[in-house]
């Protein structure tokens, strides 16, 4: 690592992180050159933070020539809202925040509505925002190593005018040639960090000094243990069951979403090195903290993707 924290190029062969970075930047530039109205989906997780950082690199010295879109549920952690606003301002980008008006009107929330909450606020909210702003391309931070159905998804992944994904009808992607042609109303989800692994991301965050939500690092926080998951009491809307009391535990999060739906792990890992160490030594995969993958058995994520979940 260089003294200024950037990746050096000491030998004639690029490291895998240098290659991945160059590939992601190439993908982002292709989209900007070939699509009319791109947007970057920004969920404030570490993947989003890396994506935003790569976008700043790809278009430097210009700011990234597209807005950030946060499809919000109003139930994210407070720390996430703070980083979101700060990161958008630093990058000099417009930040669009979409709230599904129907979910708002019906008071859909994670305590009463379970998976309907995710469906209305996130899946429907994203479709609404795509339609409202007429975006024809949306960058997302999905990676192929996250989940089995994602291992087969293309970097340029097409959605019909009704936002559906057809895994049987994907365009072949050869070399680094991406076909961005599409009919009116169709859109593309583009995944520039498809080929990164979780370790690559963490290491890149460390090498590049990328700002991430502090919740990834262990600290004493008020928690409740429920159904085998550790939930954090992030604000006064948290609903306690009878006889539940917040208990202060040293916890951190491996993924971030709506705070009542995101399980924490007990941890003392307070630095990036310690977080990476814990990640490498741990024995459960990253998405386990999210309830969503498990609620319909085999193929659950694939089904959600076909329906338009990001």
């Amino acid at each position: 690592m260089g003294e200024d924290g950037t990746i050096e190029h000491p030998s004639s062969t690029l490291t895998h992180l240098q290659r991945l970075e160059a590939e992601s930047i190439h993908i982002m530039r292709e989209v900007v050159a070939e699509c009319e109205n791109p947007v970057m989906l920004y969920s404030v997780g570490k993947d989003s933070s890396v994506l935003l950082h790569l976008a700043r690199k790809a278009f430097h010295p210009s700011p990234p020539p597209f807005p950030l879109l946060h499809v919000d549920t109003t139930w994210k952690f407070q720390d996430m809202y703070e980083l979101r606003d700060r990161a958008a301002a630093q990058a000099g980008m417009e930040l669009l925040v979409h709230h599904n008006p129907e979910a708002k009107a019906r008071g859909i929330n994670p305590f009463d509505h379970g998976s309907l909450h995710t469906d209305m606020w996130k899946t429907e909210g994203l479709k609404q925002a795509m339609d409202k702003y007429q975006f024809d391309a949306a960058f997302g931070g999905a990676r192929r190593d996250e989940e089995k159905s994602r291992a087969k998804e293309r970097i340029f992944s097409f959605r019909t005018a009704t936002h559906r994904w057809d895994p049987k009808n994907q365009r072949p992607e050869l070399w680094n040639l991406y076909n961005a042609n599409k009919a009116k109303g169709e859109s593309i989800r583009v995944f520039p960090i498809s080929n990164w692994t979780e370790l690559d991301l963490w290491q890149y965050i460390q090498l590049e000094g990328i700002d991430i939500v502090p919740l990834y690092f262990a600290a004493p926080r008020p928690t409740v243990e429920r159904d085998g998951q550790l939930l954090m009491v992030d604000d006064e809307r948290f609903r306690f069951l009878p006889e539940e009391e917040p208990v202060t535990r040293s916890i951190r999060f491996r993924t971030l979403g709506c705070y009542p739906l995101t399980g924490a792990i007990e941890s003392e890992a307070a630095t990036l090195s310690e977080v990476i160490q814990e990640m490498l030594l741990t024995t459960t995969s990253e998405r386990q903290g999210r309830v969503i993958d498990h609620d319909a058995g085999a193929g659950s994520m694939e089904k959600k993707k076909q329906e338009g979940y990001f």
Binding site: M1, T13, L14, T15, H16, L17, L20, Q203, Q206
Partner: peptide
């Protein structure tokens, strides 16, 4: 991490 960082692809 130092070792991993210098891996080729």
């Amino acid at each position: 991490l130092e070792q991993h960082q210098h891996k080729s692809l």
